[in-house]
């Protein structure tokens, strides 16, 4: 059993069902875009996939192993980047120490890659939104994960930063990694995605190759969403 598999996954908080009985499996290759309107459940789904939260019902597995047990083999970037109250360099060093997977030269490589080298010794708290976002991605990549989970990594970013992040993503995939990314930027989704997962009100409505999804969405909701009516 290879790749990601969700079996009858539901998630609820205090009786409120936020994700309904989600089932799908996905090979860990390429870029998977999670699309859907605000409040659809994209962030929740990403958290479940990563294993940072536990499904109320059902199973999330990676290569047959429960997601919660293999968190460190994946990188996760939250919708609002969380910075440790340390220098940029120390932010990158932290997960490295945890996973023992990677070398300290990786820090400098990552700093270069994310164009943060000049800011390496700044307190991370002083970074701009885009810089912090880049740092969060660099920090997620530094442990050489197989899978990268990104929750709207380019919201609030200028075109150059967006381009840089997309380059980082593509580079990661080229080296054999797989990405799950949520985004509201449809152009970006079209540029990047191989597969689309479309959710609406906690339901997974479509799970298809990106080209098919954009060319001929099958559900009413997806059509409305793409037209900007949902």
């Amino acid at each position: 059993m290879s790749g990601l598999k969700l079996t009858n996954v539901s998630y609820s908080v205090d009786e409120t069902l936020l994700l309904h009985d989600i089932n799908f499996s996905q090979e860990t290759t390429g870029i998977n875009a999670i699309l859907g309107p605000n409040g659809a459940g994209k962030s929740l789904l990403l958290s479940l996939i990563h294993g940072v939260i536990k499904p109320s019902m059902g199973l999330v597995t990676w290569d047959g192993i429960s997601a919660q047990k293999t968190k460190l083999t994946r990188g996760f970037v939250f919708q609002t980047p969380i910075v440790l109250r340390r220098s940029v360099r120390a932010n990158l060093a932290y997960p490295l120490k945890l996973s023992k997977n990677g070398t300290s030269t990786a820090i400098d490589t990552m700093l270069e890659l994310s164009h943060l080298a000049p800011l390496a010794d700044q307190p991370a708290a002083s970074l701009s939104g885009g810089e912090a976002q880049r740092m969060a991605i660099a920090r997620a990549l530094i442990t050489n994960p197989k899978v990268l989970l990104l929750d709207e990594p380019c919201s609030n970013l200028d075109p150059a930063s967006t381009k840089l992040i997309e380059a980082m993503i593509n580079n990661f995939v080229k080296q054999g990694g797989s990405v799950f990314i949520s985004t509201h930027d449809l152009a970006q989704a079209k540029r990047l995605a191989d597969v689309v997962l479309f959710i609406e009100q906690g339901n997974l409505l479509e799970h298809r190759p990106a080209k098919e999804f954009f060319d001929a969405p099958t559900t009413q909701e997806a059509r409305a969403y793409l037209k900007g009516e949902l």
Partner: peptide
């Protein structure tokens, strides 16, 4: 600090002792 860090440390599977220290 915990409010800020909680999700991140959860995502990294940080052990209780390590979490206290951090």
């Amino acid at each position: 600090v915990n409010r800020d860090y909680k999700n991140l440390l959860d995502a990294w599977d940080v052990s209780p002792v390590q979490r206290l220290k951090t």
